[in-house]
């Protein structure tokens, strides 16, 4: 390996460290395992750097190593996860996708003006993290690869070793579950309260009624 190779590798890893760490944290769900996962990924990447012919592909290649390292760890420690993965391959999309937008876009919530925008303004990074962490691994990994890492379906299929159709179906189901969790959270945390402008005159109850205050 030349000095230029080493410099390139170091520069790329340093530049991608926050993203590697953030992704590892969502995969492993705890800091210690996420740190070990990134360290192992960097070590493996360096060991195999010679086999990467196109350096334009470095980022995708690196995140593939990260994901595969995570998945092989899972298979060692939790064989049940593998079962879940295999099972999910054969499962049809039995229920219609849950739409957070449709839930927010209900007449009683439209009293507020724009409940979708309200939701987007108020949802916190930690709410999203919690919702991602709560997904079963079989759906969490494709959602992380697609929405957090920006991989395309073909790249996700190659990383997971499944057909593109399976990626599409797992993404649909993962997103549906994620939106359901966010809706539940929104109900618990925010939608019970009327927005500031209206709170003098209205209280929106969970049943959708509005009551004038006297």
């Amino acid at each position: 390996m030349t000095d230029a190779d080493r410099a390139f590798f170091e520069q790329e890893i340093t530049g991608l460290l926050d993203r590697l760490y953030g992704t590892a944290l969502r995969l492993a769900k705890n800091r210690a395992d996420a740190e070990d996962l990134v360290a192992e990924t960097v070590t493996k990447a360096w060991a195999n750097f010679g086999s990467l012919h196109d350096r334009q592909c470095f980022r995708g290649w690196l995140f593939r190593i990260l994901t595969n390292t995570f998945l092989s760890e899972c298979r060692k420690t939790e064989p049940a996860s593998l079962e879940a993965l295999a099972e999910a391959q054969g499962e049809p999309d039995e229920e219609p996708a849950f739409s957070l937008f449709d839930r927010l876009h209900q007449p009683f919530l439209l009293w507020w003006g724009n409940p979708e925008q309200e939701f987007l303004n108020k949802v916190l990074q930690q709410d999203l993290q919690k919702a991602v962490d709560a997904l079963p691994e079989v759906f969490r990994v494709p959602v992380i690869l697609c929405d957090l890492q920006g991989l395309n379906y073909q790249e996700i299929a190659e990383t997971l070793g499944v057909p593109v159709g399976t990626v599409r179906s797992r993404l649909n189901r993962g997103r549906s579950q994620l939106q359901k969790a966010l809706w539940q959270h929104a109900q618990e945390a925010g939608l019970k309260h009327a927005p500031a402008a209206d709170k003098e005159s209205f209280h929106i109850s969970q049943t959708g009624e509005h009551h004038e205050r006297h």
Binding site: D18, R19, Y21, G22, E35, L128
Partner: peptide
């Protein structure tokens, strides 16, 4: 877009140091 931001989390300084040492 908001989910995309969840994938980026500042690495703690001591962890950055660990990776620097590894490199």
């Amino acid at each position: 877009g908001k989910l995309g931001a969840v994938g980026k989390e500042p690495a703690p300084p001591e962890f950055e140091l660990r990776i620097k040492n590894l490199l």
